Amino acid sequence: MKYELSGGNTCPLATVTLDKGESIKVENGAMVYMKDVTIAGKMNSSKKGLGGLLGAIGRSLTSGESMFITQATGDADGGQIGVAPAIPGKILKLSVGKQQYCLNTGAFLASDDSVSYKMKSQSFSKAAFGGTGGFYVMQTEGEGDMLVNAFGDLVELTVTSN
Score class of each variant (00 low, 15 high):
Met1Cys: 08
Met1Gly: 14
Lys2Asp: 15
Lys2Leu: 13
Glu4Phe: 11
Glu4Met: 10
Gly8Gln: 05
Cys11Phe: 14
Cys11Val: 13
Cys11Asn: 07
Pro12Leu: 00
Pro12Phe: 02
Pro12Val: 01
Pro12Met: 01
Leu13His: 00
Val16Met: 14
Val16His: 02
Val16Trp: 02
Thr17Cys: 04
Leu18Gly: 07
Leu18Gln: 07
Lys20Thr: 12
Glu22Arg: 09
Ile24Phe: 10
Val26Tyr: 05
Asn28Ser: 13
Ala30Met: 09
Met31Pro: 01
Met31Thr: 13
Met31Tyr: 04
Val32Gly: 01
Val32Asn: 05
Lys35Met: 11
Ile39Val: 14
Ile39Trp: 07
Lys42Gly: 06
Met43Trp: 10
Met43Ile: 07
Asn44Pro: 10
Ser45Ile: 07
Ser45Arg: 08
Ser46Trp: 03
Ser46Thr: 12
Lys47Ala: 15
Gly49Tyr: 11
Leu50Gly: 02
Leu50Lys: 14
Gly51Arg: 10
Gly55Met: 06
Gly55Val: 00
Ala56Pro: 08
Ala56Met: 11
Gly58Val: 00
Gly58Lys: 15
Arg59Gln: 10
Ser60Ala: 15
Leu61Thr: 08
Thr62Trp: 01
Gly64Asn: 03
Gly64Leu: 08
Glu65Pro: 00
Glu65Met: 15
Met67Phe: 09
Met67Gln: 13
Phe68Cys: 03
Ile69His: 03
Thr70Trp: 02
Thr70Lys: 04
Gln71Ser: 13
Ala72Asp: 06
Gly74Ile: 03
Asp75Pro: 00
Gly78Leu: 13
Gly79Ile: 09
Gly79His: 08
Gly79Pro: 08
Ile81Ser: 02
Ile81Tyr: 03
Gly82Gln: 09
Val83His: 02
Pro85Ile: 02
Ala86Tyr: 04
Ala86Phe: 10
Ala86Pro: 09
Ile87Phe: 15
Pro88Lys: 02
Gly89Leu: 07
Gly89Ile: 04
Lys90Gly: 00
Ile91Cys: 07
Leu94Trp: 10
Ser95Trp: 01
Ser95Tyr: 06
Val96Ala: 06
Gly97Phe: 12
Gly97Asp: 06
Lys98Phe: 10
Gln99Trp: 00
Gln99Ala: 10
Gln100Cys: 09
Gln100Lys: 13
Tyr101Cys: 04
Tyr101Thr: 01
Thr105Ile: 14
Thr105Pro: 14
Thr105Glu: 09
Ala107Lys: 00
Phe108Asn: 03
Leu109Phe: 05
Ala110Glu: 06
Ala110Leu: 09
Ala110Gln: 02
Val115Ser: 02
Ser116Glu: 11
Ser116Arg: 05
Lys120Leu: 08
Gln122Arg: 07
Gln122Val: 15
Gln122Pro: 00
Lys126Phe: 11
Lys126Val: 15
Ala127Asn: 06
Ala128Glu: 12
Ala128Leu: 13
Ala128His: 11
Ala128Ser: 15
Phe129Asn: 06
Phe129Ser: 03
Gly130Lys: 04
Gly130Tyr: 07
Thr132Phe: 13
Phe135Met: 15
Tyr136Cys: 08
Val137Asn: 06
Met138Glu: 15
Thr140Pro: 09
Glu141Lys: 13
Glu141Cys: 11
Gly142Arg: 08
Gly142Lys: 05
Glu143Ser: 15
Gly144Gln: 08
Asp145Pro: 04
Met146Ser: 02
Met146Cys: 07
Met146Glu: 03
Leu147Lys: 08
Leu147Tyr: 07
Asn149Lys: 04
Ala150Trp: 04
Gly152Gln: 12
Leu154Met: 14
Leu154Lys: 05
Leu157Arg: 11
Leu157Ala: 05
Thr158Cys: 03
Thr158Leu: 07
Thr158Tyr: 04
Val159Tyr: 06
